[in-house]
Design a protein around this nucleic acid. Structure first.
Lengths: 317, 317
DNA sequence: CAATAAGTTGTTACCGCTAACACATTTTTG
DNA sequence: CAAAAATGTGTTAGCGGTAACAACTTATTG
């Protein structure tokens, strides 16, 4: 294993200079920096994370708290995780995953929290290390999320452009920011075009949205678009429209939200607002590492645009 | 932060004795052990992973290689990951996740590999640290997997018990162990009961299994059970049987395999062989840590039984 | 029962890296 | 142009553990 010392000898400088080149390059003259870089290159030096951690009184570990029940959770966590893990990797950080069942708040340099609901807020606010939330919230804590309002605006405008006579919103009946933002995106856009908003709120399960359609089928005349707050709701809607003999996409349109896995399981493929899940994961990781570096300084929020991914559940013209 | 030294002082022994109590308890008298345990308890001592790693020339990191494309991958990885992560946590180990796009074989104490196909074998065999494979294979490398053969045996026997006149197997058309084992479970059981095996092999996508049913619908008279090598295939089959007007579960039965997420998305819920995914993840973690401790000694294989989880796609009597 | 082995605990040095300080050397300043 | 300030580099000590060895006590043996 190549150590700082090896590099130092090769470059004819002290260990400390090499360490400085890595951590405080501005304190070293360009000349020496050059020498050190070359030595590092030649020896293929890789810093030892454990030694670094020990000297800095850090852990080089970020904990990811998943507060939702995974059994019922969309598979997008996988992508989020991949994004986080890859980014952490680049900075010689590693990951510990905690589920709601296994919250051992052990040692780490910071936290990323997903699936936080109102009831979890006290727990999270009690954390003593830099924390980033995945998912918008009003607690003032730094967060990363999709631009939920903009996302639904995009869907609604698409529906208007495609001349759906009626555009109905199927929301999720939870009192959480993301749900409100999505709904707001729909409502504002409908207002803007002088259309009347029609909103239903359901539990986020396909069987509920299917049951809802069954029960209210008479209400929805052809030429209706259902904009759903999740792909899961969209799935149930498609299922029951087919069951009722409705024609998708000619008479009925369905747009989902999330664009991870489920949209592709649907038949036909669900038109959806695809979230940049992996990128958001990377952003969470970058934010938390930055917050660690800056001793917990507030990082603000970061919103990511979604992409309207046209599938077979909306008409093209 | 509480250190070894603090504990040592409290217990009136040397650092080394405390260290021994943790790592080589058999070398310490019961008397001192007792004292040290009490001191650790009272001070709530938590070992510092970085220091341990540095002193042992270890990294306290296990890398998880996911070689499959995640976009098309069943969400069970999430559960596997949770199992791995929790177990590693208990041993002050943390995780680095590498995807096929990001294979930077940096420093770690060992590897867990998932989604390995034939083509990946050379890469994996080249790894220089203890490695455990998730998924059966014939390379002689230690692995953890479901008992695939037994699993399909269970499904087939259930079909026989439920008096399905015809029991058809829908396999996955890949040349991998798990696929062969599942098929073998079906074939052997059919043989055992003097029934004729009927096997089709398809690409593991619901649209292919749906297309297959459409094309061959006339072949399948009522009272047929489809045993599928994956829930995904099962999903397509259900979809097209419904499309063709077939009656599930009275005339047609469908059994899937995996039991993660997809079975619950199906309507009605898919009868499936549920894998003990989280437990298998924990087993992978334990095995690799043990292998690290024993300097790479072979660990053998570990098979986990699946559970036949009855859904709405098979009849009860 | 002396010589030797076995068992138990403490001491020392080191794992690889960095902060804090010490020491030159150069630049700025009145 | 001497004193003070700024700059660049090296030295030292220590982060929290562990292996290897030393030192001492207690069993075993012929």
């Amino acid at each position: 294993m190549v150590t700082l010392n090896d590099v130092a000898k090769k470059a004819n400088v002290s260990k400390m200079t090499v360490s400085r080149v890595i951590n405080h390059p501005e304190q070293v003259t360009d000349e020496l920096k050059q020498l050190v870089f070359e030595a590092m290159q030649e020896l293929n030096y890789r810093p030892n994370a454990a030694a670094k951690a020990l000297a800095n009184k850090r852990t080089q570990i970020i904990k990811l708290l998943i507060l939702e029940e995974m059994d019922t959770t969309e598979p997008y966590y996988m992508f989020l995780l991949a994004g986080i893990a890859n980014e952490l990797d680049k900075h010689a950080y590693s990951l510990q995953l905690l589920t709601h069942r296994n919250i051992q708040i052990g040692d780490s340099d910071g936290y990323i929290v997903c699936g936080m609901r109102q009831k979890d807020i006290p727990l999270i606010q009690g954390l003593k290390k830099p924390t980033i939330i995945y998912g918008e919230n009003e607690t003032g804590m730094d967060y990363v999320d999709s631009n939920n309002e903009e996302s639904m605006k995009k869907a609604t405008e698409y529906g208007i452009k495609m001349n759906y006579e009626s555009i109905v919103y199927i929301g999720i009946d939870v009192d959480e920011c993301f749900a409100h933002s999505r709904e707001r995106g729909y409502v504002k856009t409908m207002e803007k075009y002088g259309r009347e908003a029609t909103i239903y709120r359901l539990t986020n399960r396909s069987r509920y949205s299917a049951a809802f359609i069954k029960e209210n089928w008479h209400t929805f005349s052809p030429n209706t678009l259902f904009i759903c707050a999740s792909d899961r709701l969209g799935l149930g809607i498609i299922r029951e429209i087919k069951e009722q003999g409705g024609d998708i996409p000619n008479d009925y349109g369905v747009i989902g939200h999330d664009g991870v896995f489920l949209d592709q399981i649907a038949y036909p493929h669900l038109t959806t607002l695809k979230q940049a899940t992996t990128e958001m994961g990377a952003a969470c990781a970058r934010m938390v590492l930055n917050k660690v570096k800056e001793n917990g300084k507030e990082q603000g929020n970061q919103l990511f645009d979604t992409e309207l991914k046209i599938g077979g559940t909306t008409r093209n013209k």
